[in-house]
Design a protein around this nucleic acid. Sequence first.
DNA 1: ACATTTTACGCAACCGATTACGTTAAATAT
DNA 2: ATATTTAACGTAATCGGTTGCGTAAAATGT
Lengths: 341, 341
Amino acid sequence: MQKKVTIYDLAKMLNVSPATVSRSLNDHHSISKKTKERILLAANEAGYRTNKFAANLSKQKSNTIGVVVPKLNSYFMSTVLSGIEKAANDEGYNLIISQSLESEKKEKLNTKTLYDSGVDALMVSLAYETSNYEHFDTFTKKEIPLLFFDRVFTLPNCPTILIDNKLAGFQATEHLISQGCKNLLHISGNLQRNEYAERLQGFKDAMVKNGIPFRTSNLLETDLDPQKIDEVLKHIKKSKNKVDGIFLANDTMAVECIKELKKIGIKIPEEIKIVGFNNDPISEIISPALTTIDYPGYKLGVLAGQSIISHLNGTINLESAGSIILKHKLIIRESTENKLN
Amino acid sequence: MQKKVTIYDLAKMLNVSPATVSRSLNDHHSISKKTKERILLAANEAGYRTNKFAANLSKQKSNTIGVVVPKLNSYFMSTVLSGIEKAANDEGYNLIISQSLESEKKEKLNTKTLYDSGVDALMVSLAYETSNYEHFDTFTKKEIPLLFFDRVFTLPNCPTILIDNKLAGFQATEHLISQGCKNLLHISGNLQRNEYAERLQGFKDAMVKNGIPFRTSNLLETDLDPQKIDEVLKHIKKSKNKVDGIFLANDTMAVECIKELKKIGIKIPEEIKIVGFNNDPISEIISPALTTIDYPGYKLGVLAGQSIISHLNGTINLESAGSIILKHKLIIRESTENKLN
DNA sequence: ACATTTTACGCAACCGATTACGTTAAATAT
DNA sequence: ATATTTAACGTAATCGGTTGCGTAAAATGT
């Protein structure tokens, strides 16, 4: 166990005051170049490392950003996190990451803990369940920057960053229609969540625009649990008009769906065409390859990280930024190909 | 901007000393039940939240665990992290996560930062490049618990947690042999890293045990970059004896390999049988489904988290624990099926 | 040569908790 | 009734930096 060296130790060694040491270490202008160099050298030799608790306590700032996500281990989310980490690290910020596991209760706990941990800012992608938003009050009241990404909620002065889900849903659906689908089905997630609601809206809009009436049977709201793919299959089988085009709210479900449909002998894309969402790696691997919407997760992460940091630095004013909309892209693959059968 | 309420505020309000408030909040035994309740109540009403910087500074402990991983966004790693986060959160610990992006330099930087951040413990999965380990000295010298997982390095008093890579490699290879493969190829990662070296060793052992001599042509060391799959294909094509069984060090490469081999008309498993590693979701999706080794990432994460925390709590002594070996499992799927052709 | 500004640093009060040690009053022992 | 524990709290030092204010010495002005 080594003894930790403090600025007081250095001060004694060099016959200066702790204040001078502190100022030298922080490159304060009112210290002469000579003294700075002397102190820096000694600090290095002594293996001095600043105690962040003391510094944070005194500066009331932690250089740490809190992140709450539903789940760490999804391709999309881990890609986003990777981007955030990159941005944070480049700017000298640390990241405290926690997952809500889609539970509102855990989300609340996590935000509290992060608040207590003194994060300088908070980035959140909401849990599936969350319907009450009071746990963010602590942050807004104390004017701690708060940013929502992907699963967002509109709070005054809280920027959001995501893609145009409505447009994406619209494009996915129009693509199905253009490929000749007449009886569409949308497998959606919890419609309380912005992203799923908006994708549905795009789905509806595309239908209406193309003269296809939207009926409740065109929609199946699920919790997007791949384990429960049976429900989906049931719904497809019992449909009066044979479903010939499905737009699913994520790739995991879409892939599961393709697998199961193939099992019961339904040909894709000949009988049913399928569009997913996210452009996960699996979408390229599955056969037939899945048409999907590319959601630029890494870019989202980097941008979200940079935005909140530049806000912390006072470089830009996030509040006025409102929301950032990233570009998505429809990626057409075999699952919606128009084969002559 | 609300004013933050401190124990001093509470103390004044209740006509007690700050010490009493602190003790009450921490449920110290030398405070009467009545006083505790009075203080707790007041604290809640006043919206008191303890300032972690002050607490940490005084306690010299942060309740935070640092994690350095090569990449956040791989299925395996995000699953491990999910497990670690679960374990940490259950025990009231925070997680600071950073990624080395496989760079030794960044790994060093990250460990330094985490050290400065005052983490109570550090968990590391090494970068691809890392060949020097001095950056961990700061931790060992100060007796800050250090644990390696998956990509490990044997340091005195540093427990490791991973699977038996040699055995897994052995089993994967024996499986190929049992399916009739004669000309084996192992696509390995950087052999400086324990996991890849050991998988190779298992590969060799299985060959030798089954009377197949190991030649350098049976091995291709790569950096496991799926972009560079061409190298692999070249190697396969130029082999004197037609390769009929490949064991790859991870699923991503294996899947890529299957895709490319299929493209050039090679039938799997008829002509070449393939085994991957990790049991990523894609291994189930690819056609033919990939035989692979199941690496229990989530369990590893939880266990690693729990181990280091119980060590911090003094419950168990990690140093004596040495290394923990998790159980893996060979998952046999279509890619090694013995079809009659 | 004297006044004024600048430079370079020291003093000491914070930041908000924790905790060893001391003290008083109540409880128990003898 | 007196001595001894014990319970319940207060005092004050400490953790390691940061920073407003003050000041002596050096630099510049006139």
